[in-house]
Design a binder for these strands. Structure first.
Length: 547
RNA sequence: GCCUCUGUAGCUCAGUGGAUAGAGCGUCUGCCUCCGGAGCAGAAGGCCGAAGGUUCGAUUCCUUUCAGGGGCACCA
């Protein structure tokens, strides 16, 4: 019996009790079932009687008693105790708990998937680094987290399009092109230009393709270099993301918004909505109507659109493409953008609390990281991957909530011990695979699964933890918090290791024959393998069968 | 000044109004002739930054306050 099934059973008992006139209260949609901290308090506990007792106009303990009586007769429920002010402590029958192992193995890679967000059509935009340089440490957290959030949303039934917005318009691209030009011709870095060895590498790569560019005069060379260097830099970004295991469904070019007339169109549409005014030659959006601290310029007095205008057009593009929920992942240095982005949504006639969601992540630091000579004064993502490894890096970034500031310790992340949570979890997976291989070699088969044989306390604990996976995934999706998956996996790994130490899947030595309990435990072992593999997959971290 | 995030064990951090606040590291004690010891079992270690409030019940919600990070462009 899964916690979800138990929760449903409790709801059913409530409904029946109301129908029978024993209690009078509104039955909530879902009843929360928790794993009690102390084993003495049973397998599962609920505080529903404490919550509803007052509303029903009766003492919580009396309310609990009515519920307990009905619940005790539910198949699979072993015992129901009332504790303290009115907690219901529920103990399952061994067979009912153990049956979960079979359920998990049979579900396989689908175990953990749920329908909590079924029907949601989501656009997830993240990273969106400027194509004027390599990805660096400032992008890594959202790359890891954004990809994990996308996976978790999909696992919860949402339709997700992950998107990278390429800021390939505006003056910065000219500065970028000029930086490359100067580098090629041995001139100093232009005012406000890009330093760093990668500029030289881009220049070399571009010249290797098109040597004639060296001979062009400045006016002709800049546009050509701009396009060629941009293309090379974007490819570099894509390949770094691929090495990091991050994929995007769409790379969206800002330039296409300008050239296709979408920016002008967006201004016109917002004007129709009545949120635009003209002042001192500029065109403004009245974002203060929707919580922004000041109104924002869309079209400058000189006729050029602002970056914000492109943002507005981009938002409308997302809306037009049918995305009801647009999620933006921004760094803490962009938190001032939240209100104006939400104001765009509101000005466009959307609900700024429903159709747009802006997640802010605190920046990370890496202890002892060497700055990249190649990129200048920054730490490149590619170097971090080579240094720490994609798995360790992704896992460490995914195991903390986005709003917690973190400092990574690379020396710890490279260790193959308990210090390093990713190894702890991966090791549990590899160990379970090894245990299954070994069992097969010793003649243990999966015939004759008998759930009632799983009686060891560590088996009860492991089953309980494994049973929580679907609700953990749903919670991670609902709150956009993949770290819940990571923390949960550490719990699974711990329960698995304890179980492994306490019981045996294969018989001991030569003296003991293969018994049904061994085959049954093999199912449980497989169930743990399944959950660990599925969970790591959601984080974009590999689940090795051997280490 | 305004906005925002953070403050929990020596360290790095979990904790969606519930029972005795958790994990890993570090410190100390045990456990391999047998499935992977990259592991397990246990001990010690806390006025959950401070003060009020709401509640049967607050680390969690609200207010105030202290400390630290980040941000407040007709830049992109």
């Amino acid at each position: 019996m899964t916690p979800e099934e138990l929760s449903a059973a409790i709801s059913a008992c409530l409904t029946e009790a109301v129908a029978a006139g024993e209690i009078s209260v509104e039955v909530p949609e879902t009843v929360r079932v928790d794993r009690p901290k102390s084993r003495e308090h049973g397998d599962w506990a609920t505080n529903i009687a404490l919550q509803l007792g007052k509303k029903a106009g009766m003492a919580p303990r009396d309310f609990a008693q009515i519920l307990a009586t009905r619940l005790a007769s539910v198949p699979g429920v072993g015992a129901v105790d009332i504790a303290g002010p009115g907690f219901l402590n529920i103990t399952l029958e061994a067979g009912a708990a153990g049956e979960l192992a079979r359920t998990i193995v049979e579900a396989g890679s689908a175990y953990g998937s749920n329908e909590a967000l079924a029907g949601h059509v989501v656009n997830m935009e993240f990273v969106s680094a400027n194509p004027t340089g390599p990805l660096h440490i400032g992008h890594t957290r959202w790359a890891a987290l954004g990809d994990a959030i996308s996976r978790v949303l999909r696992a919860s039934g949402a339709s997700v399009t992950s998107e990278y917005y390429i800021n390939d318009a505006g003056n910065q691209m000219n500065v970028f092109a000029r930086s490359v030009y100067n580098r090629i011709h041995g001139l100093p870095v232009p005012e406000g230009g890009y330093p760093g060895e990668y500029i030289k590498e881009l220049g070399d790569a571009v010249l290797a393709e098109a040597p004639q560019l060296r001979e062009l005069d400045e006016a002709e060379a800049i546009p050509a270099l701009r396009d060629a260097a941009y293309k090379a830099q974007l490819e570099d970004i894509k390949s770094t993301l691929a090495d990091f295991g991050v994929s995007f469904d769409v790379f969206f070019s800002e330039t296409t918004l300008h050239e296709g007339g979408a920016v002008a169109d967006a201004v016109a549409r917002l004007r129709e909505q009545g949120h635009i005014f003209d002042l001192e030659g500029a065109v403004w959006l009245r974002t203060t109507d929707f919580g922004d601290d000041k109104d924002r310029v869309l079209i400058r007095a000189n006729g050029e659109p602002t970056y914000f205008a492109a943002d507005a057009a981009y938002y409308l593009s997302k809306k037009d493409r049918g995305f009801e929920e647009k999620i933006y992942l921004l760094g803490a240095d962009h938190h001032g953008y939240v209100n104006r982005l939400k104001a765009i949504a509101a000005c466009a006639g959307d609900d700024k609390d429903k159709n747009i969601e802006v997640l802010i992540g605190q920046l990370i630091s890496v202890n002892g990281a060497k700055l990249s000579k190649r990129a200048g004064n920054i730490i490149e993502l590619r170097d971090l991957i080579n240094w720490i490894g994609a798995d360790a890096l992704r896992y460490s970034l995914a195991r903390f909530p986005a709003d917690s500031p973190i400092a990574l310790d690379p020396e710890q992340l490279k260790k193959n011990t308990n210090d390093n949570p990713v190894f702890y979890v991966q090791y549990a997976h590899a160990r379970s695979c090894a245990a299954a291989r070994n069992a097969a070699a010793k003649g243990v088969t999966r015939d004759g699964f008998d759930a009632a044989l799983l009686t060891d306390p560590t088996e009860n604990e492991l089953l309980a933890v494994l049973g929580q996976f679907p609700s953990v995934v749903a919670g991670a999706a609902e709150f956009r918090e993949p770290h819940r998956i990571a923390r949960y996996l550490e719990q699974v790994a711990g329960a698995y290791h304890s179980w492994y130490a306490a019981t045996r899947i294969t018989p001991v030595g030569e003296g003991e024959a293969v018994a049904p309990v061994h085959g049954t435990r093999l199912w449980l072992n497989d169930a743990a393998t399944t959950v660990l593999a599925n969970g790591l997959e959601l984080l974009g971290v590999s689940a090795p069968e051997r280490m």
